[in-house]
Design a protein around this nucleic acid. Structure first.
Lengths: 103, 103
DNA sequence: CGGGTAGATCGACTTCCGTCAATAGCCTGC
DNA sequence: GCAGGCTATTGACGGAAGTCGATCTACCCG
């Protein structure tokens, strides 16, 4: 894994590692929603929802589509593939029996 | 996904979302190592390596095996399965075409 | 008993999170 | 068309949490 790829992976993981943002992603996995839906479903204020959505946008995890006065959010296809692959490698390695390096 | 499971998932993701800790996990995916190896490979101080290893231990991602004066670390089997599964669901959903909820 | 390794604790520093206030864009009623 | 209301975004501030380094203790070995 190259260094730049690892840094990008850390950015993605850092953004996902938050209860509110993880919940947003879960909701967006079922249907496209606009901010008013999200702030209602999450029980948070409008500005807070917007802040979390901005973090998700900056990380490239979601994309937006303006629709009149509203803005719809949806998951960006393939944005989580690298993270899934990296965790998969580690998860598989955890089940193998590995040698110890001598001290 | 239950609430408690989501909280655990966030804890795991938060711990993984760090350059040093991710590097530790990557190294441990190849072979079991003790702290002296890690602090050498990572280029960090002994206390810092110990701090990050403690975070990994508290999250249940690694387990230890004392070996005389040294302590070997290895990945805990299955500890990342939940995280991989959750990211996999989101990654798959991102590639489907989803309906918009009306405002 | 000394030498070296791992872990714990304390404190300074930075970063992140959530709220408040202000702004910009769009739609509806008059 | 324009005023007014609603939606979404942005910037700034205070507080909480994480990060890192120095120091000290516990442990095992020769």
């Amino acid at each position: 894994m190259s260094t730049v790829a690892a840094e990008k992976l850390v950015v993605v993981l850092k953004v996902v590692a938050d209860p509110v943002r993880l919940r947003i992603l879960t909701l967006l996995a079922a249907e496209q929603l606009c901010v008013c839906h999200l702030q209602d479903a999450l029980g948070v204020g409008q500005t807070l929802a917007s802040h979390h959505l901005r973090a998700l946008r900056n990380a490239g995890l979601v994309e937006t589509e303006p629709c009149g006065r509203f803005v719809y959010y949806r998951l960006r296809p393939g944005a989580l593939d690298a993270a899934r692959g990296a965790l998969g490698l580690l998860a598989d390695a955890s089940k193998a029996s590995l040698p110890k390096r001598a001290c």
